[in-house]
């Protein structure tokens, strides 16, 4: 049975889970999407523990609301939408906490990436350092832009899929991706000469 399930597409698996309440189908979908979702949510919220909780919540929501999935949509789009909504709520909550907190220790405020004195030019060529800087710069990009940039450039989704996940028009998605990339480029100007 399990071997047969492995050959099924995501949409067929969710149908199996909806119709026959097959937990194996559910488990298989979890196995397929836990890592991509984890990567997406982590790049979006910037915290591994929070990202893990969000992905766990996404899977629970998927389990509880399996019937709300309609077969005309792609399963990946649907599950990304759930995870994206939870991540956005988390970011809003964190923003409120930062506003009312007397001591702002938000990670986003820690580093001025555009400070050229931060990394010596000879060290900037080092892959690990440049990667670290990209990660930090990505955290500094506005969340509305960061979300779509991550979906496009990190997760490799199409514009249509991103538009469906974010419930935006394709034009808005493209505009936001462009702005996000420009922000990132500005932040990384000492290692990236674009």
């Amino acid at each position: 049975m399990k071997n047969n399930l492995k050959d099924l597409t995501d949409e067929q698996l969710i149908k199996e889970f909806q119709d026959n309440n097959t937990v194996d189908a559910y488990e298989l979908l979890v196995k397929r999407f836990k890592d991509p979702l984890m990567n997406y949510v982590f790049r979006f919220v910037g915290n591994k523990d929070v990202a893990s909780d969000i992905v766990q919540d996404t899977m629970i929501k998927f389990y509880l609301n399996k019937d709300s999935y309609k077969s005309f949509a792609k399963f990946s789009t649907w599950i990304y939408t759930i995870a994206g909504n939870l991540a956005r709520n988390e970011l809003k909550r964190r923003k409120r906490r930062v506003i009312f907190s007397l001591n702002n220790h938000d990670d986003d405020q820690e580093l001025q990436v555009e400070d050229k004195s931060f990394v010596a030019p000879d060290r900037a060529t080092d892959n690990s350092i440049s990667r670290e800087m990209v990660e930090k710069a990505l955290k500094k990009v506005k969340p509305v832009y960061r979300e779509v940039v991550v979906l496009r450039d990190v997760q490799g989704l199409s514009y249509e899929e991103i538009a469906e996940i974010t419930e935006l028009s394709i034009g808005t998605v493209k505009s936001r991706i462009n702005r996000g990339r420009k922000q990132l480029q500005k932040l990384l100007k000492n290692i990236y000469k674009g």
């Binding site: 990202a51 990190v154 990132l184």
Partner: peptide, 23 residues
């Protein structure tokens, strides 16, 4: 209206090279 991917090739490459985080 937007130069899409061609204008930001290096940024896209940097983002693609980021290590994948797994559960």
């Amino acid at each position: 209206f937007y130069n899409e991917d061609s204008e930001h090739q290096e940024i896209i490459k940097l983002l693609k090279d980021l290590p994948k985080v797994t559960a």
